[in-house]
Design a protein around this nucleic acid. Structure first.
Length: 883
RNA sequence: GGGCGAUUAGCUCAGCGGGAGAGCGCUCGCUUCACACGCGAGAGGUCACUGGUUCAAUCCCAGUAUCGCCCA
């Protein structure tokens, strides 16, 4: 006997390990089934499961479990990402607590420490994933720093280099002065702030007392100025172009140049040019062949190129000092408030500095071309489609991708330098040594590049590196390309774009056919959840409180396309109740000896009631399947919820009660078998979303099944449609609802049973009444049901209209005539409104002429029905008047 | 500045060219032999605003307002 409520805590762990140990999650390379592949976006090894993970992994698991039940050989490839900066920061922080800096340890020891940390505390997110019920093929779990994946990274780097798509260049990078590494454009967060603009006067050479005023937001970088620019058309400055001015505090003579970059509207119209410290100025510098003077060190403090006084000062201290010194020199014209955007490192949270360094770059522009084309031609599709725009926008304007990082944790760049700086890019040191010998004509000492690669470089290879590439493995052959990638929009650039470029370049094929972009779970202010903002919700706490299935169902039900999710705990509680409802439906079936049978054929049932529920179950199952296949998880969840609660529980089981309590053995047997079958269907099509409770019930309902639901088969619901049975049961539902409505409005005590007389019945009505007498009586709480003719005395009866029938309920003594009149009047008004609305349409010649015939007919039928009902109500009203 | 999205019941949100929906909340009545995490019956909405297209607009188009996000 099932308990009164489902207790998730008791079953989840057992079921999960049972699934895992029985190999239910494993893909099978030798299978004759068609493959279905999802690459799990590898979470950071430092990651803690947050609600966004819960959403994305739930949806992926729904797809995987569904596909598995659909007879596919499903591979959900799991793993974790080494997360260069994030992981290094975690370990550095730990060391810092012990007062140790990574430099004290040295590279080798430090990297060892990180590995130790990874083995001990890393990957907790993988354990948390199990709590979520996720069913990836754990045997195939990978880590981006695994030997085989690292090997792939090296190969890719070397090949790209050989093809000229990977190169070293001296350019401005986004330098993080706290982490001491370059970061890519994507890792920079642009924050709007109100800052200041300082107006400095630079004395013009040879023109006594004449100055040119430049507006700047970065006074400290003036020490590296190598020009002043004005717009060529700016007449205020025409005379000064070509002349030189003196850079105050430094004394260097710099040229006044004309360049379109200077905006006459902004500031004074003249702008100082610091090619070594500003991306725009760098471009201007290139056009005018200006010297690049770097005045900052790796900490963003002033370096030896600055005048002695400022050397070693932090950039912001230097700013104050310089402004003060300029003011003292009488060269500070004014200070204005200025709305501006300041770049911050997304990991460190400090202001990022454009800094001139040598870095490795990927020619993303070239790689992007096939990746753009693949989406244009539909080889890869975004769902929802609108995200194509985001993808195209970025891909078409893609910048060289800086992939080197000045970190120790990550894939070491396979490049070695000779004494003269000559670069050797090879897969191994041995090969580099050989190359150097060839190049120099003798054994020559070479030194490996100390840098590592951007984490996203290896992530970009994930769809094929995890399958064994560059080896030609059976897995690679079978599971690439994947079917769908499921992710949030925020990593379209970081990851999706990179996988597309790498996949197309190295595999010659897109890495996946579709990308489903789901919502972002935001906090109550609509803010993106992130660790740094500290506004994360803990899905595991919710799982503890409500059960994992409740959380999964809630997330699925809210995963509508195109809008972000604001999650409320109340809603989870509501869906927990749904699970209890399923549980109790099963309990009811158990109490009434509804046992599933393998021999049961749903197409063979005979009673209207059973044909009806079979038909409805098939509809629901098909609706859930179609929803999942089109990534409309919310619609699938709705279909499931509605069928289970409002069709199966509210009506079918209630209708089955009189059968179960009756003495027609054949009907009883069929209805029991049908109920058991329908319940099984609910478990089947609920399983992808709610794996635990469904599996538990599947086993508890029939301990001799010998199979797990996870390995169950999703039936083809064909040939089960029964429109006649549906029409008939709809009629019954309407009848019962009408009686209940009157009872409630008239405050009839629930216990008292009424005698129902029905007027205006046709043969169909009479036959239906006859065959459903028991269940109508039970559900409407009736003592008797009789059909009467038009002459029947209705005095003292409440009347209500259902279709062409008028229901008469004897409520003499309880009827408040005024109340009853008001009730009927209200009903009448409703019909009037309906009739007016439709007639207006039908009276429109254009409508009748141009609308499809079916729509016109439908409206005609509706207005006829409403008129019929109205006349019945009017009749009732007139009878009332005559009492 | 450019782009995208949102505006529907008290709240959170579905729907999207021909009958306005869900969950929660609210009201009334029920210890009805599966379930009070329940059952039954209800209340509640000029579908942001203004134009346009159409026989027909909550839905399509244009504009306005407000809010949010992304990119520069």
């Amino acid at each position: 006997m099932l308990e009164k409520t489902y207790n998730p805590a008791e079953v989840e762990e057992t079921l999960y390990s049972d699934w895992e140990q029985s190999g239910s999650f494993a893909a099978d390379t030798g299978s004759s089934k068609a493959p279905y592949t999802i690459m799990m976006p590898p979470p950071n090894v430092t990651g803690i499961l947050h609600i966004g993970h819960a959403l994305t992994f739930t949806l992926q698991d729904v797809l995987i479990r569904y596909s598995r039940m659909r007879g596919k050989d499903a591979l959900w490839q799991p793993g974790t990402d080494h997360a260069g900066i994030a992981t290094q920061m975690v370990v550095e922080r730990q060391l810092a607590e012990a007062g140790i800096h990574r430099r004290d340890l040295g590279r080798e020891k430090f990297v060892k420490k990180v590995w130790d940390w990874k083995e001990e505390s890393g990957g907790s997110i993988i354990r948390q994933l199990r709590r979520l019920g996720a069913s990836p093929d754990w045997e195939k779990e990978r880590f981006t720093l695994d030997d085989s994946l690292s090997n792939a990274v090296t190969k890719v780097f070397v090949q790209l280099h050989k093809e000229g798509l990977m190169y070293r260049d001296k350019r401005l990078v986004n330098w993080d002065p706290k982490l001491h590494t370059a970061i890519s454009d994507l890792e920079v967060e642009q924050r709007e702030t109100t800052g200041k603009m300082w107006f400095f006067k630079y004395p013009v050479d040879g023109m006594d007392g004449v100055t040119i005023t430049v507006g700047t937001t970065r006074p400290e970088t003036m020490l590296g100025d190598t020009a002043v620019a004005v717009h060529p058309d700016d007449e205020r400055y025409t005379e000064l172009v070509g002349k030189t001015c003196i850079l105050p505090l430094v004394g260097r003579s710099i040229t006044i140049i004309a360049d379109d970059y200077a905006d006459p509207e902004k500031g004074s119209g003249a702008v100082k040019i610091t090619p070594a410290h500003d991306f725009n100025d760098f471009e201007v510098g290139k056009r005018h062949n200006l010297e690049r003077i770097n005045v900052l060190d790796e900490n963003a403090a002033l370096n030896e190129n600055a005048p002695e006084k400022y050397r070693g000062m932090d950039r912001f201290d230097a700013r104050k000092a310089i402004v003060a010194d300029m003011e003292e020199a009488g060269l500070l014209e004014k200070i204005e408030e200025n709305a501006m955007v300041i770049p911050y490192g997304d990991r460190s949270g400090v202001v990022v500095e454009p800094w001139l360094t040598d870095q490795w770059y990927v020619d993303a522009h070239t790689l992007a071309q096939p990746a753009i084309k693949a989406v244009e031609t539909g080889q890869m599709k975004f769902v929802p489609k609108q995200w194509e725009n985001t993808y195209f926008e970025w891909m078409r304007n893609i910048q060289p991708w800086c992939v080197s990082r000045q970190l120790w944790w990550g894939h070491r760049i396979p490049a070695w330098y000779g004494p003269d700086g000559h670069i050797f890019v090879e897969e191994t040191e041995a090969e580099a040594v050989v190359a150097a010998k060839v190049h120099y004509g003798k054994d020559t000492e070479i030194v490996q590049d100390p840098d590592v690669l951007d984490t996203w470089f290896s992530s970009g290879l994930w769809p094929f590196s995890t399958l064994g590439w560059p080896d030609k493995t059976p897995e690679l052959d079978r599971y690439y390309p994947g079917d769908v990638l499921v992710t949030a929009f925020d990593i379209i650039f970081f990851w999706v774009a990179r996988m597309m470029m790498m996949g197309l370049h190295f595999m010659g094929e897109v890495p996946f056919r579709e990308v489903y972009i789901h919502a972002l779970v935001r906090d109550d202010k609509g803010q993106k959840m992130s660790k740094s903002k500290g506004n994360v919700m803990d899905p595991l706490e919710l799982c503890d409180k409500y059960g994992t299935d409740s959380v999964r169902f809630t997330l699925s039900a809210m995963a509508a396309q195109g809008r972000d999710i604001k999650l409320s705990e109340q809603r989870i509680a509501g869906y927990r109740n749904f699970i209890t409802k399923i549980w109790n439906a099963a309990r009811f079936c158990e109490m009434n000896e509804c046992v599933p049978s393998a021999k049961f054929d749903p197409a063979s049932v005979t009673s209207t009631l059973n044909r009806w529920i079979v038909s409805k179950a098939a509809e629901a199952g098909n609706a859930v399947a179609a929803s999942i296949e089109s990534y409309r998880f919310n619609e699938g969840a709705d279909a499931l919820y509605h069928f289970t609660w409002h069709t199966f529980c509210d009506w079918f089981l209630e209708f089955a009660k009189p059968v179960f309590h009756g003495d027609e053995e054949a009907a009883k047997a069929e209805t029991r078998a049908t109920a058991a079958w329908a319940l099984d269907q609910i478990l089947i099509f609920a399983h992808p979303i709610m794996p635990f409770v469904t599996e538990e019930l599947w086993r508890r309902i029939d301990e001799n099944r010998g199979s797990s639901l996870i390995n169950g088969e999703w039936p083809e619901y064909a040939g089960l449609s029964a429109p006649d049975a549906q029409a008939e049961m709809d009629w019954v539902v309407e009848l019962i609802s009408a009686v209940r409505s009157v009872r409630a409005e008239m405050n009839v005590p629930p216990k008292s049973k009424l005698d129902l007389s029905v007027k205006g019945t046709n043969e169909t009505d009479q036959a239906r009444l006859e065959s459903h007498r028991a269940l109508v009586s039970a559900n409407a709480r009736l003592e008797s049901i009789v059909c009467v003719d038009d002459e029947h005395d209705v005095s003292g009866a409440i009347q209500t209209v259902v279709g062409s029938m008028t229901l008469l309920l004897p409520l003499a003594g309880v009827i408040d005539l005024d109340q009853e009149r008001a009730r009927l009047q209200k009903e009448n008004d409703k019909h009037d409104a309906e009739i007016a609305k439709i007639e207006k349409k039908l009276n429109n010649a254009g409508f009748v002429a141009k609308a499809p015939a079916s729509v016109v007919d439908e409206n005609k039928a509706r207005v006829a029905a409403a008129q019929d009902a109205k006349s019945k109500v009017l009749e009732a009203l007139s009878r009332l008047a005559s009492i």
